[in-house]
């Protein structure tokens, strides 16, 4: 008998093992839900599957009586707009700041302490300021994501730029590059896939800020909805929304990863063998 650490499951077993925890949680939920509902048919904490499908039908397939819009679609679109703009602005800002910070000593000495201090400010603590300055509209919510996410990406990119081997930068200078053309031809192209990586890893953080901002001040959005229906203990709406948010987060992670693999074959070439 081999040691446990040397035993490898076959492909089929591996898939089954991967699905098993999901199945177990689902079965546990069904039993617990049944047990609670048997005791009190009006229990709202663990709704039955039929209640879920009713709620999903109401939110996602029936236009709202008040506005004529489908709430679920409206919530998703407005949340994704905020998230998209927030992350896009962060990525652009991070690229504009991270490369000079990593490459140019004057910029690094001048700005590094400030960036380090700024990134320590808890973004949620400045949320009230954002609401005061930008009002309760969209800008404040996008700004929260930008303030929360940009410093993370900036510091990551700065680190990556300074990890470029000195040999490469010297070589580029002997090939006739100026600071600007070296940024354009050597550093920027090497940083793009790393930027996508950084964005992917900070998406989770971006979601946190999005949902927090929506919970506090919004009139639609995924975060707004779950915090709104919390008042009625509508677990039948909250749980599908949470599942949907999780799925979206997973989807974006997957898409960005595939995109990076496709766009930058040289970047992943060394990684896949690891």
């Amino acid at each position: 008998m081999k040691r446990l650490m040397n035993l490898r499951p076959s492909k089929g077993t591996a898939i089954f093992l991967g699905l098993l925890p999901f199945l177990l949680v689902a079965i546990m939920y069904l039993f617990a839900s049944d047990a609670r509902l048997a005791e009190n048919p009006n229990d709202k904490l663990l709704p039955a599957l039929t209640t879920f499908s009713e709620a999903i039908d109401r939110m996602a397939f029936t236009p709202s009586e008040r506005t004529g819009e489908i709430l679920f679609v409206q919530d998703t679109v407005s949340s994704l707009k905020r998230l998209g703009f927030g992350v896009l602005i962060s990525a652009i800002l991070a690229l504009l700041m991270g490369i000079p910070l990593g490459l140019i000593p004057y910029v690094r000495n001048g700005l590094s302490p400030f960036v380090a201090a700024f990134s320590m400010v808890p973004p949620l603590a400045v949320l009230p300021i954002l609401f005061i300055v930008f009002g309760m509209g969209e800008i404040a919510k996008v700004a929260l994501i930008v303030i929360g996410v940009t410093p993370l990406i900036v510091r990551d990119l700065q680190q990556r730029v300074s990890e470029i081997p000195a040999e490469q930068l010297i070589k580029a200078q002997t090939l006739g590059g100026s600071t600007w053309t070296i940024v354009l031809r050597v550093i920027l192209p090497q940083m793009l896939p790393r930027l996508f990586d950084a964005v992917r890893l900070t998406l989770g953080t971006a979601w946190i800020f999005l949902i927090s901002a929506e919970a506090i001040a919004a009139t639609e959005g995924l975060g707004y909805r779950i915090f709104l229906v919390r008042r009625y203990m509508s677990m039948d709406v909250i749980l599908p929304y949470v599942a949907w948010i999780t799925f979206l987060a997973f989807l974006f992670d997957f898409i960005i990863k595939k995109f990076t693999y496709k766009m930058f074959p040289w970047y992943t070439a060394g990684k896949e063998t690891k």
Partner: peptide, 8 residues
């Protein structure tokens, strides 16, 4: 080592 550009 390291004197060629990995992205080109």
């Amino acid at each position: 080592r390291y004197s060629v550009f990995s992205h080109l």
